[in-house]
Nucleic acid binder design. Structure first.
Length: 304
DNA sequence: CCAGACGTTGTT
DNA sequence: GTCTGG
DNA sequence: CCAGACGTTGTT
DNA sequence: GTCTGG
């Protein structure tokens, strides 16, 4: 899963995003932690806007009070059933938390928590598909917050989280070209976008435990750990672009997760805030599905 | 996610 | 707000 | 019916 | 052990 990540410079994201409204402000970061304000893209009335939102979703029914339980990750299996995710899902409140890489921890035999930096080898930046919600505190303060979606881990992340029994988790990841699929696609298209990124287009390496503390910051956090040796985790060497497909060789049963119900199409901001408290009026506008050809364009790339 | 705190009374 | 547990 | 929860991951 | 803060 994902509880810490990094950001590239704001301009780098804006060059790839074609935003209609820029309401965010941030610099390159190397240790973004939950509860912090993070940059995200959402579509309001057809306008792609870059905004800052609290990472750790505060449901509208929580009235601005952060829950005691964790709401930084939304498991794909629970999007439709969990109260915290269900509302945003129904209202189509999808967003993308932009990122340039993230960290995962490997618990070693001696109890040490060894962090790994994970990134894509084919894209400098990417996005975590997420959900957002708006919560209003007793004093009227409006808080927009978000959570990123997690899926069963691919080979790379499964090895970092070397737990035996269960599959292990990782954040769903979108290449820039697929951002709009999640933000504006039909329910099935958005659903299809939630997949583990192919392991062969990702790489991971050990970094200093300095990143363990959420108070540290700086580019040195993503430098390879000093004195690194080929570890027992032989699979954790960087994977290079164009490496052999490594297709087949599927070990174990393919994880047959129960199919998640469909997501609602995105709706307007008014519907998002009003719809929660009131009956849907006839004027409530639901975005029409985009042309279906996009669905074909989105080729399945499973099997990692 | 990890790190760090985890409590009270009553005030220099 | 909505669902589960008692 | 009302009260209480509302979440995730990994368990070296 | 468990919760809060970043």
């Amino acid at each position: 899963m994902c509880g810490r990540y990094i950001l590239a410079q704001q301009a780098k994201f804006e060059r790839e995003l074609r935003l209609g409204r820029i309401d965010w402000s941030f610099s390159a970061r190397y240790n973004v932690a939950p509860s912090q304000s993070v940059p995200a893209v959402r579509v309001i009335e057809g306008v792609h806007e870059g905004v800052m939102m609290r990472w750790g979703l505060i449901p509208f029914f929580a009235h601005g009070v952060p829950p005691r339980y964790s709401t930084i990750n939304a498991s794909i299996e629970r999007l439709q059933s969990a109260p915290a995710w269900r509302g945003p899902c129904k209202r189509g409140q999808r967003c993308i938390q932009v990122a340039a890489g993230f960290y995962e921890w490997h618990l070693e035999a001696n109890g040490r928590k060894q962090p790994y930096f994970v990134h894509l080898t084919d894209h400098e930046i990417f996005g975590f598909p997420g959900l957002w919600d708006r919560s209003i505190a007793a004093d009227g303060t409006v808080i927009d917050s978000c959570a990123l979606v997690t899926v069963p881990a691919n080979e790379l992340l499964r090895d970092i989280h070397n737990t035996g029994a269960h599959p292990g988790r990782m954040p769903a990841i979108l290449a820039p070209a697929d951002f709009d699929l999640w933000l504006e696609g039909s329910a099935p298209q958005a659903r299809a976008a939630l997949r583990a990124y192919p392991a062969r287009r990702m790489a991971a390496y050990r970094v200093s435990t300095r990143v363990n503390s959420p108070k540290t910051e700086g580019a040195e956090l993503i430098e390879p750990a000093r004195g690194d040796e080929p570890s027992a985790l032989h699979l954790l060497r960087p994977v290079t672009l164009g490496s052999p497909p490594a297709r087949c060789g599927r070990r174990g049963a393919p994880s047959t997760e129960p199919l998640v119900e469909q997501l609602a199409p995105p709706v307007h901001a008014e519907a998002a805030t009003d719809g929660a408290q009131h009956e849907r009026g006839a004027e409530t506008h639901v975005c029409p599905d985009p042309p279906a050809d996009r669905a074909e364009h989105y080729r399945a790339d499973e099997g990692e």
